[in-house]
Nucleic acid binder design. Structure first.
Lengths: 189, 189
DNA sequence: ATTAAGTTTTGCCTTAGGGCAAGATTTTAA
DNA sequence: TTAAAATCTTGCCCTAAGGCAAAACTTAAT
């Protein structure tokens, strides 16, 4: 249950087994069904999640109600509505389980307490921020100035998991095209 | 010359005057002319910059040579090609001074040494990462699923400085439209 | 097993935005 | 102050992608 998290913090950031004994106490297991929400727009995000299995999706809706997906968190990734989590302000994003998932949950106060008290945990937060930032950059540059077909090819090259595991509707909302366009694009590949 | 940086670190992150005496030694002043490059694509980004006056622009070019702008750093902001700065890998982005500018430069090794040794400086880095991340998110959500006109209005509401101070070509490359379209949009406002 | 609910594909037409070229305007430099 | 160089605007036409509706196919639920 905690193996993956231990591996992540120990291998990745040098957290010792003793330190992990402290850390693990703050995490609780949650099993999610397909389409379960972890957070709805307008609510304050009070938890960080570590994905043991399955996949979480972060998305929002525009004025016409179309969904726009920003990020998928697969196994062994931390994921949360980070802006709301940091500022403890109402979230612009929804967070939803795409498939059946198993996640570890930690409360925001506890998370930041660990960041402040354990240098190795702090380093994992810093690393998460750096990664989250760099992923966003790739996203901006991978999309702006490119056609829908180029974006699809970019996704195939950079995030094949997304294409192989998720539904077309969800992929389309990530690519910023309609489901119709995505369907047509596939035949052009 | 160091007033703004001191204010940023002291007011914003509680760095004491004594600590600042140490920090300032690592920064050197650079005066930039309009269009001077601080970094070209393919080079490794070895410095972080603090903008005293003027404006830096971070952008890249797509396969057809069109420029795509991601970020503008105005006065009292840190700016750099962060992905290359973090990984010390060749940069995808160019960094250029848009107007005449005055910046403070610090070397990457020195920057991270200060992050490791001075908790207040570390906190300013963490804050910068958080801000950079949140700005990216706004960018992604402010653009995806919106028309060019809606994006322009978003920019007016959220970054009026960009519209008032910079040229249309540069604004267009930030909005992800051609200069022609931007020109037409302005008449629709 | 059979229905119901959701998802994906495809045809037909519409629309937002791009590209080019020429003219207008502003900025820069001598 | 005037020429030269950018920059910005606008007309005309073109193309990528969207919207709707119906058909084909999947998945879930009884």
């Amino acid at each position: 249950m905690f193996d993956q998290l231990f591996h992540y913090l120990n291998n990745g950031h040098g957290l010792s087994p003793d330190q992990f004994e402290v850390v693990r106490e703050f995490f609780t297991l949650r099993r999610l069904k397909r389409k379960d929400f972890l957070l709805r727009q307008g609510k304050i995000c009070r938890h960080m999640y570590f994905v043991n299995s399955g996949c979480l999706r972060l998305f929002t809706t525009n004025t016409e109600g179309q969904e726009m997906t920003r990020y998928f968190a697969f196994e062994d990734k931390f994921g949360t509505a980070l802006t709301s989590f940091i500022n403890q302000e109402p979230s612009f994003e929804f967070m939803q389980s795409v498939t059946e998932s198993e996640v570890l949950e930690i409360r925001q106060e506890d998370y930041y307490r660990l960041v402040d008290e354990i240098p190795e945990f702090s380093s994992s937060y810093r690393n998460m921020l750096e990664q989250a930032y760099m992923t966003s950059q790739q996203r901006i540059y991978g999309f702006q100035g490119y056609s829908a077909l180029e974006r699809l090819k970019w996704l195939m090259a950079n995030h094949p998991k997304i294409l192989s595991k998720l539904s077309s509707r969800v992929i389309a909302s990530y690519l910023g095209v309609t489901q119709y366009t995505l369907s047509r694009l596939k035949s052009e590949l």
